[in-house]
Design a protein around this nucleic acid. Structure first.
Lengths: 338, 338
DNA sequence: CCAGATTGTGGTACCGATAACACGGTGGCG
DNA sequence: CGCCACCGTGTTATCGGTACCACAATCTGG
């Protein structure tokens, strides 16, 4: 018989006390005589007893489980977020259920339903889009605290950890302007993602401030991944007056965009300069290429998880936290700066 | 009152049946009259009832939870493994608890203990080293099936999904030989990791077959990450007769090694040619550099998880599976081939 | 020296579901 | 027309812990 079938009652029997006393020993409550404690501990190790968190959770109404939901773990930005979140959670003795929604609202809805059924104690989520609000409302109904990471959602009231999307975008575009570019394209995902909106705002602000009229043809919507970036750049390159520089909403889009430039027989930055949000760290170490507004992905994860833990433990402040983390502007080759 | 406090009894009361009948409706067991079913479903949606998997798990002795344990999620190889595993698990209606051990045996021991307490139904693990055997034995004692990914451990009897480490290593080194290199360095992690052993065997086999004597000075042990790679390469560069080419045990080590070469004012591949295991996908898309034996990371994840699910459901074959997945040899610039 | 507090321990109920069995009602069949 | 199988449903016990209260024994202080 495997020790997984050993229960608190078996331990109680072997050590000649009641299950309740064993429970006290397991939980380090005081009120147990040293002698009894010793006997119980002896029995525990003899039987190889491991208390079931399942049963404990049911009884205490606490599972010791969080969840981290991201649209794509393979995006280095989210990988770092997840890794950091897992570490903070583990240190606080929580387990992390990882969910990769593949940026699919339906999947997101389903996993959130599952997590509720699982009675996770909290969720750190980079939501698919504003339309995630519906699922998040479910969490609220069920009293599950959550923290938004990277993306905020209007009307959803909770702690949020964001980057400075509009400021960062503005800085990136201003950099291109300073290099003399006047026709600057923008490849961005749909407007129901807050980062897309904010970065678009930054893009527009920079151009307007420079007295450059906005040309709608220069702004292309695309999926937030390499294939989207590729498609978006292809469209921009087909324009009669094509842009001399392009700003992409994130790192993976930049990747696809660069591939499209090369596929057209052109080169970055010679024919098209390029800047984007978020780095691909290992790529940059190998070959510093992307000029990017790098966001402190790790901090998104650690901070988000810490805020969540505070909420769970009821230590959170009354008002919501909205943390905005500044990015770091890294000039490399893709922008063509000397 | 939030619906999370709604129990099967509340539903039963509202619909005028017993809890058992509600349970039958939830679980789609037959034996419920259409009329009753309708009434119960009505009550469920009216109350916003979501059955607790916790309670169900306790009663049925199934949690619907797996775990994936890796030494470093941020390594693109493991990121892909994790992502694929999560998807397969989700499709099979399992949740995935992610654990990143940071290649630390102590952490690994602790998380495995936690997972046992959590009563996960199975584990997919890329173990830290052979010394992980102790922890794995715990899983066996508790009847928790597990599948080893990427690394096998002598004496541990379970399903395994591996790459062809020795064959792949041999091919990489033979490629260097064919380019005329005779002094080929090897930066490798400690010998208590099966991939390290196997790759070392492949390295030695290739040299021996070419009639080249093994020079112990050319083989350096290092941590399996960029800093290890950097340290390892630094040591090789200090040799009186330094290698003209280097083989590193994996992608991240290669990264560090390249940085060390550059720090020494040299270049890859001009001054030192370099080959390694595992690609850094996004980096290669941006700038095809690493000549590498690419392993199908995704398949490691999907296959490993599928094997695990079979074991869990008792469908597994009697004998253990040992799957060896072939790699794909990608020649890029770092080896200096034309 | 005794009331009252404190300590160590046990009993019982319950967390929220399900397994196993029981039971009345209906319909088929000889 | 009576027996039996099956159908739909309920009852009870249980999964493995813990909360809460009770209680005897010991301790404290006036």
């Amino acid at each position: 018989m495997s020790p997984s079938n050993t229960t608190i009652r078996d331990v109680a029997r072997l050590s000649g006390v009641s299950p309740m006393t064993v429970s006290r020993v397991i939980n380090d409550s005081e009120r147990v005589s040293p002698e009894t404690r010793r006997r119980v501990e002896q029995a525990i190790s003899e039987l190889g007893y491991v208390p079931s968190r399942l049963a404990r959770g049911l009884s205490r109404q606490r599972t010791g489980t969080l969840s981290v939901i991201v649209p794509d773990v393979a995006n280095p930005f989210f990988t770092a977020v997840v890794r950091a979140a897992e570490e903070v959670a583990r240190r606080a003795d929580y387990r992390v259920i990882l969910c990769d929604t593949r940026a699919d609202l339906g999947v997101e809805r389903d996993v959130i339903a599952e997590l509720i059924a699982h009675r996770v104690e909290g969720v750190v989520i980079a939501p698919v889009s504003d339309r995630s609000a519906t699922h998040l409302r479910r969490l609220t109904e069920f009293g599950v605290p959550f923290v938004l990471i990277d993306r905020t959602i209007p009307g959803v009231d909770c702690d949020v950890v964001l980057g400075d999307s509009s400021g960062g975008a503005r800085q990136l575009v201003e950099h291109l302007l300073s290099l003399g570019h006047r026709r600057i394209g923008f490849i961005v995902e749909s407007d129901d993602v807050s980062t897309a909106r904010d970065r678009r705002a930054g893009y527009e602000a920079a151009l307007t401030a420079a007295g450059i009229a906005l040309d709608p043809a220069l702004v292309t919507n695309a999926a937030p991944d390499p294939s989207g970036g590729s498609a978006g750049m292809a469209k921009l390159l087909e324009l009669e007056k094509r842009p001399t520089a392009v700003f992409t909403v994130n790192n993976l889009v930049a990747l696809g965009a660069i591939e499209a430039v090369r596929a057209a027989g052109l080169e970055v930055p010679d024919d098209v300069a390029l800047v984007c949000f978020d780095d691909i760290e290992y790529a940059s170490r190998l070959y510093p290429f992307l000029t990017a507004m790098e966001q402190p992905a790790q901090t998104f994860g650690t901070l988000g998880t810490q805020l969540l833990l505070e909420r769970i433990e009821g230590r959170g402040p009354d008002r919501r936290h909205e943390v905005v983390l500044p990015g770091e502007f890294m000039i490399r080759r893709s922008c063509g700066a000397k």
